[in-house]
Amino acid sequence: MTPFKLTSYIFSVIIFVIYSTFVTVFQPKPAISADNIYFPVSSTKLRLSVKSLEVFAKEGRITKEFEFFAKRLKPEKLQRLRKLLLYKFNTNSVAVSQLTYSPIGEEYIRQYGAIIKTRTGQNGFYAIRSALVLAAADPEGLTGLSFIRHFPTDIQISVKDFLELLDELSYLTG
């Protein structure tokens, strides 16, 4: 092998190794988001996948998993939930960010964080703030579904708090 071919070969191998390392190390990682919503009941936690909720919201179809929860809601509450999941807030990420970092916005988020908790049961303040800003920047816009999809961990909420929150937020959808 001539020195030029040998140098060219070594150079090609080095480029290949660097490229392979770069692709492996900097490969896009899947986003962390809520896959499930947990409802603590007594000493157990009922689980509902976000996918089942999404199917219900977008198609109106009740999956086998969601059926357990749907049977326990009155038809009007079920429709209210569907509307709330799909309702698009007319806002953008800058406005949402400014609101969530304002003193009054922070206070509201802390209050809702006591209800909408992380999977481990901690106040969901930071997760809610993050989910609101990211959902507002989402091409779909800020909806109940996009908020849940951008929540950085699984969600924990009591059944009682969930039903009260559903009633409280239902004024948004008319």
Score class of each variant (00 low, 15 high):
1 M>H: 13
2 T>P: 07
3 P>L: 11
3 P>A: 04
4 F>I: 09
5 K>N: 11
8 S>D: 04
10 I>E: 11
10 I>H: 12
10 I>K: 13
11 F>Y: 10
13 V>W: 15
13 V>P: 06
14 I>T: 05
14 I>D: 01
15 I>L: 14
17 V>D: 06
17 V>M: 09
18 I>F: 06
20 S>R: 05
20 S>F: 04
21 T>V: 12
22 F>Y: 15
25 V>G: 06
25 V>W: 10
28 P>D: 15
28 P>L: 13
29 K>P: 07
30 P>T: 12
31 A>E: 13
31 A>R: 15
33 S>T: 14
35 D>R: 12
36 N>W: 08
40 P>F: 07
41 V>W: 03
41 V>N: 06
43 S>Q: 02
45 K>T: 14
47 R>H: 03
49 S>N: 06
49 S>P: 07
49 S>L: 14
51 K>R: 07
51 K>S: 11
51 K>L: 05
57 A>H: 10
60 G>Q: 08
60 G>N: 07
61 R>D: 09
61 R>A: 13
63 T>N: 11
65 E>S: 08
67 E>H: 14
71 K>T: 13
71 K>R: 15
73 L>D: 01
73 L>K: 02
73 L>G: 01
75 P>D: 11
82 R>E: 10
83 K>T: 04
83 K>D: 08
84 L>S: 10
85 L>M: 05
87 Y>I: 09
87 Y>N: 01
87 Y>D: 02
88 K>A: 12
92 N>C: 09
94 V>L: 08
95 A>P: 04
97 S>R: 11
102 S>A: 07
103 P>R: 06
104 I>F: 04
107 E>I: 14
108 Y>H: 06
108 Y>P: 02
110 R>W: 14
111 Q>S: 10
114 A>T: 12
114 A>K: 12
116 I>F: 04
116 I>A: 01
117 K>W: 02
118 T>Q: 10
118 T>F: 12
119 R>P: 05
119 R>E: 14
121 G>Y: 09
122 Q>Y: 08
124 G>K: 00
124 G>P: 05
124 G>E: 02
126 Y>D: 05
127 A>R: 07
128 I>K: 00
130 S>N: 12
133 V>N: 00
133 V>M: 00
137 A>V: 04
137 A>Q: 08
138 D>T: 10
140 E>M: 10
143 T>E: 01
145 L>W: 02
146 S>T: 15
149 R>Q: 12
150 H>S: 03
150 H>D: 00
150 H>T: 00
151 F>V: 00
151 F>Y: 15
152 P>Q: 06
153 T>C: 15
153 T>L: 02
154 D>N: 14
156 Q>G: 01
158 S>W: 03
159 V>F: 08
159 V>C: 00
160 K>Y: 09
161 D>Y: 11
161 D>W: 15
164 E>Y: 06
171 Y>Q: 10
